[in-house]
């Protein structure tokens, strides 16, 4: 069967197919809607696989995605029309579903307190993860300075470095995933992570030195432990992450 005779069969590959489908769906063509359901919606499942949602919830998400694509809200037209013909309908379906899935996860409290921003979370995670038990005890004496040093260190990173670190540490993204997101080779992503990590270590040391002063008791031990621990702890920490 040729493509011309079976537009639906080649839908995924052709802008024309999308256009046809979008037009059909927006005009209420039930056949087109069914095709959308059977052709594009299944892609939602692998796209959301990482979220580990139950099958029933995934079914819900599919239905709501469909609904959002086709109906729109009082102020906006149906999503599907905005995308028709641009070859991005597949991606849109997944993005809408992802957003739904992410919100469900967040609602289920698999994240830290709502008041914390991702960077607060990152700072917390880095500052506890980077310390040996010995220096953790010492840390209690200097909790404030310590947190602050990490906070400043994280804030001083470039947006990208911070973002990459966040993806890696908090969301457990692999270098392949980070590379894919940024459209760069995995080695570049790995380098970014390494640089961010190094940078944090150096900055924390520097901030601690200046905020606590070299003479302050215990700081040197703390730094000493940091010096030897940062590289290893971080590298051990990074691949694990806290993710959802």
């Amino acid at each position: 069967m040729s493509a011309a005779e079976d537009p639906v069969g080649t839908l995924a590959a052709l802008d024309a197919g999308e256009l046809w489908l979008a037009a059909g769906c927006s005009s209420g063509d039930r056949w087109a809607t069914r095709e959308l359901e059977s052709t594009l919606l299944p892609a939602v499942v692998p796209a959301l696989a990482h979220l580990r949602l139950e099958a029933a919830v995934l079914e819900d998400i599919k239905q709501i995605t469909l609904q959002r694509l086709l109906t729109g809200s009082p102020n906006t037209s149906a999503k599907i029309l905005e995308y028709a013909g641009r070859g991005r309908l597949r991606a849109l379906v997944k993005v809408v579903a992802l957003r739904l899935g992410v919100d469900i996860i967040r609602r289920r409290g698999r994240e830290p307190t709502e008041s914390a921003t991702p960077d607060d979370w990152l700072v917390e995670r880095l500052s506890t993860g980077m310390l040996s038990p010995e220096s953790r005890a010492m840390k209690t004496e200097h909790t404030h300075a310590f947190k602050e040093a990490f906070g400043v260190a994280v804030q001083e990173l470039s947006d990208r470095a911070r973002g990459v670190l966040r993806l890696h540490v908090l969301h457990q993204c692999t270098i392949d995933e980070i590379g894919a997101l940024h459209g760069v080779h995995r080695s570049t992503a790995a380098r970014w992570i390494a640089e961010a990590r190094d940078s944090i270590g150096n900055r924390v040391r520097r901030h601690l030195r200046s905020s606590l002063g070299l003479t302050s008791q215990g700081v040197e031990s703390l730094l000493e432990s940091l010096d030897s621990q940062v590289e290893l702890s971080l590298s051990r920490l990074l691949p694990r992450g806290l993710g959802s």
Binding site: P46, A47, L48, H50, L51, K94, V95, L98, R99, G101, V102, D103, I105, R106, E111, E114, A116, T117, P118, D119, W121, S158, D159, R160, R162, G163, V164, R166, L167, L170, H171, Q172, C173, T174, D176, E177, I178, G179, A180, L181, H182, G243, S244
Partner: peptide, 27 residues
């Protein structure tokens, strides 16, 4: 993307979405 990262620093929802899109894309 850098702007998106800057925003994600304070928005857990967008931070999570970024991560998931990255995963999706890699896959």
């Amino acid at each position: 993307l850098d702007q998106a990262h800057a925003h994600a620093a304070t928005c857990t929802r967008c931070a999570a979405l970024l991560a998931e899109v990255g995963r999706m894309r890699a896959r």
